[in-house]
Design a protein around this nucleic acid. Sequence first.
DNA 1: CCCACGTACGCCCTCTGCTGGCCCAGA
DNA 2: ATCTGGGCCAGCAGAGGGCGTACGTGGG
Length: 552
Amino acid sequence: MDAAFGLVEPFTKIKGTGEEDDEDRVAWVKEESSACDCGAGVTALDGGGDPPEWSLPPEEGEKQLLTLQTVHLEAGEDAFQGEHQLSVPPQNGERAGAWDGAGLLQPLVVVQQGHGLLQDLPAGVALSVQEGVCVFYDLEVIQSSILQERMQAKNLETVFNCDLCAFTSLRISSLNRHVKIHSDEKRHVCHLCLKAFRTATLLRNHVNAHTGTRPYKCSDCDMAFVTSGELARHRRYKHTLEKPFKCSICKYSSVEASKLKRHIRSHTGERPYACYLCSYASKDTCKLKRHMITHSGEKPYECYVCQARFTQSGTMKIHILQKHGENVPKYQCPHCSTFIARKSDLGVHLRNLHSYMAVAVKCSYCEAAFHERYALTQHKKTHRNEKRFRCDQCSYACKQERCLLVHKRTHTGEKPFTCLCCGKSFRRKQLLTVHFRKHHDSNFKPTVYECPKCGKGYSRWSNMHKHAENCGLVRAKAVTSRKRSKGKKKKRENLKHVKQEVNLESFQDVSTVNNEHCASEIVPILDGIETAAPSEQKTEMTCEMLLNMMDK
DNA sequence: CCCACGTACGCCCTCTGCTGGCCCAGA
DNA sequence: ATCTGGGCCAGCAGAGGGCGTACGTGGG
């Protein structure tokens, strides 16, 4: 076993062996011909159908032995060839495929519960094979009895048996020590925590953990450990990078057997740890524990900067990096110039915008078609400033058909919107609305833009802005584009301070509002504080919005 | 008795990727 | 005003690394 661990690329399998095998076996599977007439029940599960089965034919009373151990194999070497090959030729009607194909990373031998010699044994470690799940049995139990029989048969040596379990040893001292595990006797008590142990060694290690005594120091780093086993494991993780436990299904390998066991659950889908509050089940206890936080609502992780709380440390870490960090890395899309804060969101971006669509999507403005959404949206932008709608009676052109319809009324003289109160007609619905409010609605109170300094009111923001500049109170701040800002709502709230409800006789010629003013911000300077501008009012007065109102 | 070694379980952590709600810019 | 697309963001789970500890056994 040790020798096998020291090799470069061992992997775990069960080896068959005859009596001539080496002595460094880890576990033995005894064939009990009395238990099953068909011989040893060594069964491999196949991906489909019934599992193939083969037997270990007894040879003149010899016992067939199986051992689970790590074995070094060169790439391409058949794991079941050579001196230690388990001689298990397919029986009548049995399938040999799984066995013949057993090379490196190939299926392990599977011992199926209820078959052959193992039918009465408790199930042990669950492992997986290429196309199925293996169930290994308590090989230690099997080992002891078969070892005992072997020894007795050969009269090699006296074997000491435990009366309470199947333990067998060649040494009486080992048996004596072993027998103690069947009692609760723990004579070695820690003077620091009163915890009791069976052996002095266990107590010493325990006390060393208390005192921080770590006799086993790593020669390659500053780490030190209580036991040599810890040191050995540490060295594998950090220095030798030796990973003796290799998955038979994929290329995963691990330092510890328990990690391989955990990994194999990702192949088998086994989820032994079920949540008692919902249907979730986890592959290991740690995940279940983390999951339970979702039921308690607990947020154990707090941002030290803004005190925001999070359910997982990783989430908090990303928050701190992106909200409070400097030089936060961004991920640039390889297909466009977009920068995205998170790698996972870049994945979403790539899926949504740059993935190939089997059915090409046509542009709604022309005949062009695209298999990529991003290309389509970019193409559509080329239509953005096109004035595709032209008046056939003058040089007027516009981007939207509805604008052209309104324009044409100037040629036809059509005024389809008539006031029900006085009979006056208008080309645009908006004009009718303004007329009705001004002349027939006594409850109407129009919005007023008031100069923050002198209080003078204006019906239009642009006029107030012009006045305010002369008033010396404000300065115009050009804005080239509409910027995304989380302060947008606050700006809107500030706007309400400027707006006052005053009866004014304005709202004439609203369609002539200058759009250039919509692209500027007015920033009153009050006590050194820049107040947000009434941007909403600017956009309220755009031509496009008026036309929208007409449509309604 | 002691040590080395292997096994087993647990804990904590990180990295990763998916999901859905939120928000904003643009149509 | 409304809708929609897309980035931002927190929640959440999968997978794995590394270590702590207890325990059993073989062998010197």
